[in-house]
Design a protein around this nucleic acid. Structure first.
Length: 359
DNA sequence: GATACGTGGGA
DNA sequence: TTCCCAAGTAT
């Protein structure tokens, strides 16, 4: 059987590798013989995060946690603090748990078996494929947003299924005897990131434009098709800047959910048109047994999360009475020591408004 | 399969 | 200003 797809596939593979060898960006995690921990770290940091952001944070992270052992030994709060500002904080919590599993269950050696590695927290199909191929030279495919876009355009398919994408990526990485799987996978992603971009792709610089169905049809900008955005809800949160004897009250958020495990100024969701101070005093009493004296309001801080828009309304407060002894999730923090805590961006902004050591 | 989950940069 | 988006994972 002489399938016409075969020569095209082989030609694409070779063109892609040649292009990658010449045009690949010089990124700190691209080392001649990569340390699995470093590859893993870079892949987790890169999840939904721009390369330029990761460049800087990757270096800083390795200065603080140079090895898997160093990270495994670190305290959870320290790890979350190191991740501050990167977002999707479950990544940090999962990575920390995962390296401890590697330390305890694999004698500190990252498993080179895809099934075993895939069971670790925070390791999905993409990350498993990336680490296996890049760090261990195993012919495992990756499908990320770049690969999805590149394949959708090659096939001029507006909505390729996950099953088809993984199948096609798998065939490509296993072709040619499965040689250079890490380079092939990165070539596919690099092409999507630098040439086959979401908007205004540089088809004239593309090594595989000749076999691209979307380019032939002129539909590259419309592949893959965009989903229509849904409206995001808006919350208002009355927030207490509760100062007492030179310290501010901080609370740790629950481990699960939005900003899990991060610290913040205590606050309550504002419903309907209740007065901010009244609602805050009432809420803090109900939730934490805190009796506060609300004072001046500061300028509101608006923040856009992925699926939620929040307007924080900070209120300077004094303390009348407290009754939360023994609650480890509430702490008095000296105002000049707020840098020691892992705070989300909007919380830092409110701290800065109050003249504390925010950034 | 759909939804929750952060942040900052660019158009 | 507003919207889109960036090397995904867990549920």
């Amino acid at each position: 059987m002489n399938l016409p797809a075969e020569p095209t596939s082989a030609a694409r593979r070779e063109a892609l590798l040649a292009w990658y060898d010449e045009h690949r960006r010089d990124l700190p995690w691209r080392e001649p013989s990569p340390d699995p921990y470093r590859v893993w770290l870079s892949e987790v940091m890169l999840q939904q995060t721009r390369v330029e952001t990761v460049r800087k944070r990757y270096r800083e992270w390795l200065a603080r946690f140079p090895s898997l052992e160093a990270l495994a030994e670190a305290d959870g709060d320290e790890v979350l603090k190191a991740w501050e500002g990167l977002g999707y904080y479950a990544r940090a919590r999962n990575l920390h748990r995962a390296v401890r599993e590697v330390r305890d269950g694999y004698r500190g050696t990252v498993p080179d078996d895809p099934e075993a590695f895939r069971t670790l927290p925070g390791v999905g199909r993409y990350t498993a494929g990336a680490v296996m191929s890049i760090a261990f030279g195993r012919p495992e495919p990756v499908v990320d947003g770049n690969v999805r876009r590149v394949l959708a355009r090659w096939n001029d398919d507006p909505a390729p299924s996950d099953r088809d994408l993984w199948e096609e990526a798998g065939e490509m990485v296993r072709a040619g005897g499965g040689r250079r799987p890490g380079a092939l996978n990165q070539a596919l992603m690099e092409l999507g990131a630098t040439v086959c971009t979401p908007r205004s792709p540089s088809c004239d610089a593309c090594p595989v434009a000749a076999t691209c169905a979307a380019f032939a049809a002129g539909t590259q900008e419309e592949r893959p098709a965009k989903k229509r955005a849904r409206s995001v809800p808006h919350h208002e949160i009355a927030t207490a800047l509760l100062l007492h004897e030179g310290s501010v009250l901080l609370r740790r958020r629950p481990e699960e959910g939005l900003l899990g495990g991060m610290w913040e100024l205590p606050g309550v969701r504002l419903r309907e048109s209740v007065d901010v101070r009244v609602a805050l005093a009432r809420g803090l009493a109900e939730e934490w047994g805190l009796e506060v004296l609300p004072g001046d309001e500061l300028e509101p801080v608006s923040h856009a999360f992925t699926h939620l828009r929040v307007t924080y309304r900070p209120v300077c407060c004094g303390l009348a009475a407290e009754n939360f002894q023994g609650d480890p999730d509430l702490v008095w923090c000296p105002v000049d020591e707020m840098d020691r805590f892992a705070l989300p961006v909007a919380q830092r902004r409110m701290a800065a408004l109050a003249g504390w050591s925010g950034r």
